[in-house]
Structure formats: C-alpha cells, structure tokens
Simulated assay, not measured.
Amino acid sequence: MDKNQTGIKLMEEGNWEEAAKMFTEAIEETPTDAIPYINFGNLLSAVGNKEKALDFYDKAIELDEGAAAAYYCKGNVFYELENFTEAQQMFEKAYRCGLETGDNFFMLGMSLVHLNELRLALPYLQRSSELNEDDAEVSFQYGLCLAQENYIDEAIKQLQRAVSIDPNHADALYNLGVAYGFKEEANMALEMFNRALEVQPDHLLAGHGKKLIEDSGL
C-alpha cells in the first residue's frame, strides 16, 4: 500500500495527524504528482480548513490541468461555502475532464438548483438518478426539481422511488402528499402526510397539509 492509500485509510479511521504525515511524505517523494495534493486538500477540507484546502487543489490543477478529481473536490468546497456559481463551474470542469460519475452530475445539478436554474439542472439530476439507482436523496432532489417545473407525474415517480429506497424519508413523503394534492387526489395526499408524520411527528409542513385536507372535508 503506497503512502496515498495509507493516508486515505488513516483519514477514514479519523487519524488526521498520521494521515497528514503520509500525504506530506508522498508530496516530498513525488512533488510533480497531483494526487497527494488532492488527498491533502481533502484532509484539510474534512477538518474544516476549507480555504487552505483550495490552495492544495489549485496546486494539483497547476501540476495536472486534467485532474478531474481536483475540480470536483474544489467544487464541493465552494458548494459547502454556498458559492454556487464557482461550484457549478468546477463540477462542469470535472465533467469536461472526464468525470462522468453520478455524484458529479448530482452536485452540478444541485448547484444549478441553488442558482434557480431548475430547467438546466434537470438533465444532470436525471443522469445522476440513472447512475445512482439506490440513492434516495438523488431521486428525492430530482423529483423535487421536476415538481417545481410542473412535471407532476414524473415527480411522483421519482418521489415514490425515493420512498421505496428509504421508507423513512419524511420530506419525500410530504412532497408526495403535495403532488397528490396538486392532482386533487385528496385520499392519497392525506395518506402521504400521515406517513410523513409517523416518521417525523414534528414535520410542520406535513401537519399543515393534513389539517388543510381534513378541514376541507375532502
């Protein structure tokens, strides 16, 4: 196992100091290799030093302009800092460098969602859902985006998929209730609100939705 792999294993174990030592040694031994800089950046990001992490990702890109992982990791930092424009640009660069993973498509789509570019976000979230078939959050966010663009039937399919993966996804259940309400299927809407409240009794929006239906007498 090389020092990069050892460092990653130490990170997974929460042994930050020893991981940092491994990555430092890897950098010293192969100073023109982008990978240990990316790994050290990931370590710094994990412990909350986001700005310093960006310096390491930039160094990796300086060494290898095609380092897709560096752009992806940099995009994650910008996303966490709520700089969604920069995040979008980094995820796009990662994609252009060949990173066609479900996670990169998802983060690109979510960056566009935060920038209120929902229609542009849809194809990326769709591709992410195709690649991450068992990820409830991906299906949920894709369904939510579809609903916001008034593709209600398609949204219901994705929200149902999210619930089938994670039956305790209260927000997916709530939004299913909203979608059924939009289609004037009151019984289904009420069932979804009730299920959301079973999972999360303090879900205020589900409680409000349930009360609206019950008060309407439908």
Rank of each mutant, 00 (worst) to 15 (best):
D64W: 12
A34M: 06
L190M: 05
S164R: 09
F23T: 00
E100L: 09
A26I: 06
Y124F: 13
N175L: 07
T85I: 15
Y37L: 04
C73T: 12
E18Q: 11
G109F: 09
E86C: 15
D64P: 05
K157W: 12
A26W: 06
K157Y: 04
P36K: 05
N42W: 03
F84L: 11
D215Q: 11
V113D: 06
M188S: 05
A68C: 12
E130V: 05
I38P: 01
N83W: 12
H114I: 15
G217F: 10
S129R: 13
G207N: 06
T101L: 09
V77E: 10
H169V: 08
F56R: 01
R195I: 11
G181S: 01
L99Y: 15
Y72S: 06
V113I: 14
W16R: 00
K9W: 10
A186E: 13
Q5E: 07
M22W: 15
W16P: 00
L190S: 03
N132V: 09
F84E: 15
N187S: 14
A26R: 00
T32N: 15
N83V: 08
A67N: 09
G207E: 01
M188D: 08
E191Y: 05
F78Q: 10
R195W: 12
G7H: 04
E65I: 03
V77I: 13
Y180R: 00
N175H: 04
L115M: 14
D2Q: 04
Q158S: 04
Q160T: 11
I27Y: 01
L173S: 00
C145I: 09
L99G: 13
P201R: 07
D166K: 03
L112N: 11
Q148M: 10
E51R: 03
K9C: 10
A68I: 11
A155S: 04
Y72V: 07
W16D: 02
I27K: 02
D55G: 04
V138T: 05
N175D: 09
Q200W: 07
Q5R: 04
G7R: 01
E51Q: 07
A172T: 08
E18A: 11
D202T: 02
Y174M: 06
D215A: 03
M110W: 10
N39R: 02
V178P: 12
K74N: 09
